[in-house]
Nucleic acid binder design. Structure first.
Length: 366
DNA sequence: CGAATTTGACCTGC
DNA sequence: GCAGGTCAAATTCG
């Protein structure tokens, strides 16, 4: 039975993901992690190939296409996107782009920038971004900036992000990421290490990344243009060097939540890696996001867990007082699950301010 | 001088 | 038709 093989493949992927989890500790070799990632991707590629080619009752072509969008390098050969032969190049590009707009995974980080304090957060997320547009958004007092990966052309990396300053609270920036980075970038590792360790490496403190400078440039320019308030400009300067802020992450495409996983840095330290609860958190994260997201369409979506994830601040806060929380929403859930009644969003709401005293050790929450 | 940003035009989805 | 998203020529930056 083909379905059994499919399940077997997916189960194998799950096991490999668990192995990967165990190799998240800094002491593990990067090579091993890379190998596991390759194996995981291979496993899912196999499963998807089955769904695409043989499976009678499984995935729609759009679903495979969607997944292929997440792993363009891996799935390029099986994506059924070949119906553009009579379009000229520009049309093909535009069709491609606008299809992406709808299918690309998307999640938002809300970066709070407190006055006199600071955090690069997603403004320095380890990737090199190139601004390609800015747009005034209806009802928003601040323009939205559009960025794409610098390596879009060199490596075909399709990741993009949008940076929008919050209307009611200008100290909050909403950064919406789309697509997953397929580029290989050295700084990525450094940032992952920095995000997961208590103390930033000297290099991170010594020099600003180019990307950060760009953002700073943009932000300061924008600020000066909008209110000519020099003091606030100075604050913006300070937030790049300063110390504290809040960061929230929420996905907006449950269907695509696995894309959080490769770019999300678990706040592990070498000691925390041995913490059972931390591991269970990650396992929960993997199973609910990395695994579950792969297909609510053919894996039973009968989950009643809350999709609110957060990390115990005692484990997660670094010396800067930086707290991360991960918050998934169900905005698109109804497209996937017909009866999402048991899936409860955080009753506190999306603007919930992280409570450092919340007993996140209670794993029932996950 | 190459790379990044700016900005108005253009395209698509609703 | 409108709003959001992207393109690409012009401009600026390093």
């Amino acid at each position: 039975m083909e379905q059994m093989v499919l399940i077997s493949e997916l189960t194998q992927g799950k096991e490999l993901a668990k192995q990967l989890r165990n190799h998240l500790k800094p002491s593990s070799s990067k090579e091993k992690r890379d190998l596991l990632i390759q194996q995981i991707l291979g496993s899912y590629e196999k499963a998807l190939s089955m769904l695409n080619c043989g499976g009678g009752g499984g995935a729609s072509s759009s679903m495979v296409d969607e997944l292929a969008d997440h792993f363009p390098s891996t799935f390029a050969n099986i994506s059924p996107r070949s119906d553009t032969s009579d379009l000229d190049y520009k049309d093909q590009c535009h069709k491609h782009v606008y299809k992406k707009r709808k299918t690309m995974p998307r999640w938002t980080e809300q970066v709070k920038v407190c006055s006199g304090t600071g955090l690069e957060g997603p403004l320095d997320d380890g990737y090199c971004w190139r601004k390609y547009g800015q747009k005034d958004i209806l009802g928003a007092s601040f323009p939205r900036g559009y960025y794409r990966c610098t390596h879009r052309h060199a490596q075909g990396c399709l990741a993009t992000k949008q940076v929008q300053r919050s209307d009611e609270n200008p100290s909050i920036f909403e950064v919406t990421y789309r697509g997953r980075h397929t580029c290989s970038q050295n700084s990525q590792l450094a940032v992952a290490v920095r995000a997961s360790s208590s103390v930033p490496p000297p290099a991170a403190a010594a020099g600003m990344s180019k990307e950060k400078r760009n953002h700073q440039h943009y932000l300061i320019k924008q600020q000066e243009h909008e209110d000519q308030n020099q003091k606030q400009s100075q604050e913006l300067m300070m937030f790049s060097f300063g110390s504290a802020a809040g960061l929230k992450v929420k996905t907006e495409d449950l269907d695509n939540r696995e894309d959080i996983f490769p770019s999300f840095s678990f706040p592990l330290t070498s000691t925390e890696a041995d913490n059972v609860e931390e591991n269970m958190f990650i396992e929960s994260f993997i199973e609910n996001n990395f695994m579950g997201s792969f297909s609510p369409k053919f894996i039973s979506p009968a989950t009643s867990e809350s999709n609110y994830f957060s990390v115990s601040p005692s484990h997660n806060m670094n010396n800067f007082g930086l707290g991360h929380s991960v918050h998934t929403t169900e905005s698109d859930l109804t497209e996937i699950i017909s009866a999402p009644n048991s899936v409860t969003n955080s009753p506190i709401g999306e603007d919930f301010d992280f409570d450092p005293n919340f007993p996140f050790d209670n794993l029932e929450f996950f």
